[in-house]
Design a binder for these strands. Structure first.
Length: 279
DNA sequence: ATGGGTACCTGTCTGC
DNA sequence: TGCAGACAGGTACCCA
């Protein structure tokens, strides 16, 4: 499920309500991708200072336990393919897909994740330990100033893989997943099969603009809800209704009327219009 | 360094 | 109706 827009929508839907909350209890269900990495008691009594996002990861900054010096840390959360977070004031009993609960003074934060590719990992610092290892090597944030055509062009040089796979890899730019990679390449008019190193600087400019536009628009409409994505209040997104190519194999291109094609790249579906998108 | 493939896990949909 | 197979929003890790 969740690409950058869904993760950001999730963050926006809970950060104001959760900031300042005190953790009262932790419940761990079936194993997620990685173990929590600490005893539940390590978290209890801490205050939630802030919720930040890095790529598709969320970082819940946690203050020190009362009376314990230099004890700060945080939780790194990932929603995997099928995860979502919900914040509620009345705690219902956990369902079969609810694998992580944080009971707080401001409500129950619950991670629901049928496929269990998601994770909640304790780390004493965002830049070191478990979190540091997972966040190391991530590319630039697409909605920040560092994502430029010059950077994209430089980083694509010497890459023979298709530009779509280079976008997905996450070491150049983060947060662009399978839906938005197809959508951005459509907007930029670039054939997803084009080798990375063959993308000119001028086309990198269009691609940077397209990635930014697609992600910003998706955040604005609450992300894409294909199946199970919900924000922390249970609201679904609407971007799936305005996708130009993703999931539209065999349907007419909204620009030229030609037929949208589906191909497989790196075991993932790619959708594109062969007429509007050129190498 | 790059690239290709596998693995993790469960639900839903399609076609026979 | 049953069942096998394909497919699904991600990404760390192993091996060439």
């Amino acid at each position: 499920m969740p690409e950058l827009p869904e993760v950001e929508v999730t963050r926006l839907s809970l950060v104001d309500r959760l900031r300042g909350a005190e953790i009262a209890g932790v419940r761990v269900g079936k194993p997620l991708r990685w173990p929590l990495g600490c005893a539940p008691s390590t978290l209890v009594g801490r205050r939630l200072l802030d919720v930040n996002r890095r790529g598709k990861y969320l970082w819940f900054a946690l203050g020190a336990r009362p009376g314990v010096a230099a004890d700060d840390g945080g939780l790194l959360l990932h929603l995997g393919m099928s995860g979502s977070l919900n914040l509620s004031t009345h705690a219902e009993p956990p369902g079969p897909w609810d694998h992580f609960d944080l009971a707080t003074s401001h409500g129950l934060l619950r991670l629901t994740d049928p496929r269990r590719f998601g994770a909640a990992v304790w780390s004493s610092s965002r830049d070191e330990g478990a979190a540091g290892k997972l966040l190391a090597g991530l590319g630039v944030e697409p909605l920040e100033a560092g994502f430029t055509a010059a950077l994209l062009h430089a980083r694509l040089r010497g890459r023979r893989v298709a530009v779509k796979q280079a976008l997905l890899a996450g070491d150049i730019v983060v947060g662009v997943g399978n839906i938005y990679a197809s959508e951005a390449l459509f907007l930029a008019g670039i054939d997803p099969r084009t080798p990375g190193h063959r993308i000119s600087l001028a086309r990198c400019e269009r691609l940077v603009d397209a990635v930014r536009a697609v992600l910003a628009r998706a955040v604005a409409v609450g992300g894409s809800t294909l199946r199970d994505f919900r924000d922390a209040h249970g609201l679904g997104g609407a971007f799936q209704n305005e996708a130009r190519v993703y999931g539209r194999e065999g349907e007419p291109c909204t620009t030229c009327g030609g037929t949208v094609r589906r191909i497989v790249q790196g075991q993932r579906s790619t959708y594109f219009c062969p007429h509007c998108q050129r190498r």
